[in-house]
């Protein structure tokens, strides 16, 4: 178990987090209402159309906006994967050993019996 834990420890050394500043072109727009909203109406084709509007001051500043890209790398140990791999290897070793046993011992002994 100790070598396995050591291996996990070695793999986790490289785990870290970092952040990168990214400036993207995005104009800064500030809208300030100057007066209370006004409602105007227009009648046509049997309908009443009402428009809600307001007078605003729009201030546009050509600028770049800061975005921060975070990257977080964490150590992960998945017990399900560990079990799958462990028993997969164990099963392979056992089946390989069984095959070797059958081919070199069981078959050979049959040949000896024939002789």
């Amino acid at each position: 178990m100790i070598p396995a834990l050591l291996a996990c420890g070695v793999l986790s050394i490289g785990c870290a987090s970092s952040s990168t500043d990214i400036w993207q072109r995005q104009d800064r727009v500030e809208i300030t209402p100057l007066a209370a909203p006004a409602y105007t109406e227009d009648r046509s084709l049997g309908h009443l159309h009402v428009t809600a509007s307001e007078q605003v001051q729009v201030a546009v500043t050509p600028s770049e906006r800061l975005y921060v890209k975070h990257e977080d790398t964490e150590f992960a140990f998945d017990w399900d994967s560990f079990g799958l791999v462990f028993f997969g290897i164990l099963g392979s070793v056992v089946s390989l050993g069984l095959t070797v046993f059958l081919v070199f011992f069981a078959v050979d002994s049959n040949d000896d019996e024939k002789k």
Partner: peptide
């Protein structure tokens, strides 16, 4: 089975860097 998982996300900040002078205009908006 062991390894590192990486997740990344982008945070939107309220920090701006001006590139030019501010232009102001008055509009009637819906």
């Amino acid at each position: 089975a062991a390894g590192c998982t990486t997740r990344s996300w982008t945070e939107e900040t309220d920090t701006y860097r001006p590139l030019g002078p501010t232009e102001q205009r008055i509009e009637n908006r819906g």
